[in-house]
Design a protein around this nucleic acid. Structure first.
Lengths: 193, 193
DNA sequence: CGGTAAGCAGACAGATCGGTCTGTTGCATC
DNA sequence: GATGCAACAGACCGATCTGTCTGCTTACCG
């Protein structure tokens, strides 16, 4: 119903807004990027943004949810080609290494958005959801691997994940994720014996 | 020269501004707190703020520098009562555990400010300086401990430090730092053999 | 063909922000 | 007592931000 008459089909406003938000919010931070910048990049009228999302906060929330779902898919695809639980756990770090190697890598989108959000914001909830999912995934895999205290191991693995994201971001070193992966292996072997 | 005539001596404007900035900036984030809030909390005229610091950015930078120096002192005092290098390394995590247990703990002030700062900001430089100091400290101690690849070990220790700060902050769990400390010990023992 | 709905352009409002400026007060030193 | 200095109060400015509103165009569908 939105298609342009011309041959090239135009994606609906909502998609273009989310794409523009993803680029700008992740690159510069949600508070430094104004609504006007987003609609200009998306090629969309301001009224359309407020028809689709209702507020900037909801746009930010949707942007984070999109990131969360994209990461879920990315990780699940990687896990599908692994056999042992230990391989799967290490594959999660490999997936992060791939993300961190990109030129547009700017650290954890959730942590950054959370640092800028107001206390009672829905952004925090989205951030928590993303972290809870990762923790559950680590715990499941640790259990499958036969680790002794799977919940504790999962917390340690996520701590390594968080630390690697920070290190890889601020001193754009590609060795950070490798260090985290090595420690993850150490922790795992220790827990399995 | 600033002292009030009355018996109670009043601290100079600069000190009160830094104290107010420390509370507000760390609690709510540097971008969400306006100049007006800071001067109101400090009980200081706006003109005095600009006489002392010249800009909000410089106030933020000074606030971070103050935090950095306070942490240096805190850590050095802890190290002074340790004997072995390994004890000293673990004491750094104990110091963090102490900070993280405080009710007003809000994670790493540098990481949060850095997430909100504009790209070319002097805030980033302050953040880098703080991280470089910690890395150098870890490296020195790892070397003294006789670790095989002290620089690599130092990076791993700082990664654990970063991850612990994130974990302790967002899911205010006091077990995060303990987990990091345990992993630090594991990494150290592995590097020393 | 006419109705519906999505999207467009852009002016506008209200609030807030960082920063400047003017003028005044209180204290210490000379 | 005069001078200098630090701090005071607060009006003011221009920019920017989110969000609203009006009116117009276009595409689809019954």
């Amino acid at each position: 119903m939105i298609r342009k008459s011309s041959s090239q089909a135009r994606r609906p406003a909502r998609e273009r807004l989310l794409a523009a938000a993803d680029e700008l919010f992740y690159e510069e931070g949600v508070n430094l990027v104004g609504i006007d910048r987003v609609i200009e990049r998306a090629g969309v009228a301001k009224a359309s943004l407020y028809d689709c999302f209702g507020s900037k906060e909801e746009l930010i929330r949707s942007y984070l949810q999109q990131r969360h779902e994209a990461r879920q898919i990315r990780v699940r695809e990687r896990l599908a080609v692994c056999v042992t639980p230990k391989e799967k756990i290490l594959a999660i770090f490999d997936s992060m290494a791939e993300s961190a190697a990109r030129a547009d890598f700017r650290g954890c989108a959730f942590a950054r958005a959370s640092a800028e959000a107001r206390p009672g914001s829905s952004v925090k909830a989205m951030c928590d959801e993303s972290r809870a999912w990762l923790l559950g995934l680590f715990a499941d895999l640790a259990r499958q691997a036969g680790a002794r205290a799977p919940d504790r191991v999962a917390q340690q693995l996520r701590l390594l994940y968080d630390g690697a994201l920070v290190s890889a971001h601020v001193d754009h070193s590609n060795s950070a994720v490798a260090n985290a992966r090595a420690m993850a292996e150490l922790v795992l072997d220790q827990a399995i014996r």
